[in-house]
Amino acid sequence: MRIKVGLIGFGRMGRCYLKEMQKSGRWDVLYICDVDADSRELAKRLSPESKIIENEQAIFEDERVQVVGLFALADSRKEQIEKAIQSGKHIISEKPVADTIDKEWEVVDLTENGENLSTVNLYLRNSWYHQAIRQFIAQGEIGELAILRICHMTPGLAPGEGHEYEGPAFHDCGMHYVDLARWYAGCEYKTWHAQGINMWNYKEPWWIQCHGTFQNGIVFDITQGFVYGQLSKDQTHNSYVDIIGTKGIARMTHDFKTAVVDLHGVHHTHHIEKPFGDKNIDVLCDLFADSVQTGIRNPQLPLIRDSAVASEYAWEFLRDAHTHDLPAIGELKILEQIRERRKNMKNGYGLLPK
């Protein structure tokens, strides 16, 4: 039996979920909801068998709907999660699960005290490359994990292009890497120091590097920013994970098409290249479908709590950056040039939907 689902929010992520659900054959998309008329028209073309609606209430009132997918803006999610729990529906949510950290922790309480299954899209946990690295570490090949180095710098979204409800770049995107480090460490953060820079004289740092320790002694550094050659003729990026143990290392790089993993352990050396996998929504949807059909939550699924913890620390690291010297380099007119260029770009990073 296919799982009946209603999707709320049909922007970029909502469309990604629809595509993977249609491809898998395990889902019956009964509803697609969006307040934007153009998005509803697109939904009609892409999923003619679905009921396309403007008012989300119909999804929560339809007893046939087993799962709701929450892909609209973050300020809508707490209320939608409350409705889902009240109507007995399982939940797949984008991150963050609310627009303020206080509301996120309220959502954690709601979901943990209810009987509904819930998960959030912390997509790096579902990637084949991080799963392979974690397995290699668990086999003892690199000895004790000691140092976590994570970097993700792209041209990406410029300020003002979609961060209104998810915060500056280090929260909107960077919380994925805050979660990833915590997932590898298997422990909570203990100390940190963050340094940022207000590129183009924008009011918030669009690049931050944070380093510190976990409670078990593992050290980390996380670098994230959408400042990497925004106006360069040919855009590029720099994204890697570099994990150092007492005996060996594991590392990963990617070009958004192919991920490359190098594992150098005490007994084995591996070089693996496979397709990158993008947001790994197919994996998330399959794990959640398995959980709904069996009634047993797959332990690989991220918890709502994981999202709230990552969000809270990402905000904390941002606040810490504001307590130190925060230089401003560049001028706002350069940012205007970046925004104008991105309006017409057909190939690039983090392009806005037309």
Rank of each mutant, 00 (worst) to 15 (best):
W200L: 03
K83W: 00
H90C: 02
E204A: 01
A328G: 00
N116P: 04
G69L: 13
I3Q: 08
N201Q: 11
G225M: 09
E161V: 13
L332Y: 11
Y129Q: 13
I92Y: 06
D290K: 04
E61H: 08
G14W: 04
L287I: 05
G265W: 08
Q230H: 01
M199I: 12
E115S: 15
L326C: 07
E61G: 01
V219S: 15
S50R: 11
I137M: 00
F71D: 04
Q131I: 12
F226K: 04
S311I: 01
A74K: 06
G6A: 03
H163R: 15
W192K: 11
E273M: 09
I244D: 04
S76R: 14
P168T: 05
I142P: 05
K203A: 15
V29Y: 07
H267V: 09
C173H: 15
E331C: 02
L318F: 15
V292I: 10
D325W: 14
I329R: 05
P275D: 10
Q86G: 12
G88C: 05
F170L: 03
A289Q: 03
C151E: 14
A314P: 03
R182T: 06
I249K: 13
I133H: 02
I244M: 06
H90A: 03
K19L: 10
K103D: 15
K233Y: 09
D28S: 08
F214C: 00
A310L: 06
I218T: 00
A43V: 02
K247E: 14
K44D: 08
S76D: 12
K78W: 07
Y17T: 00
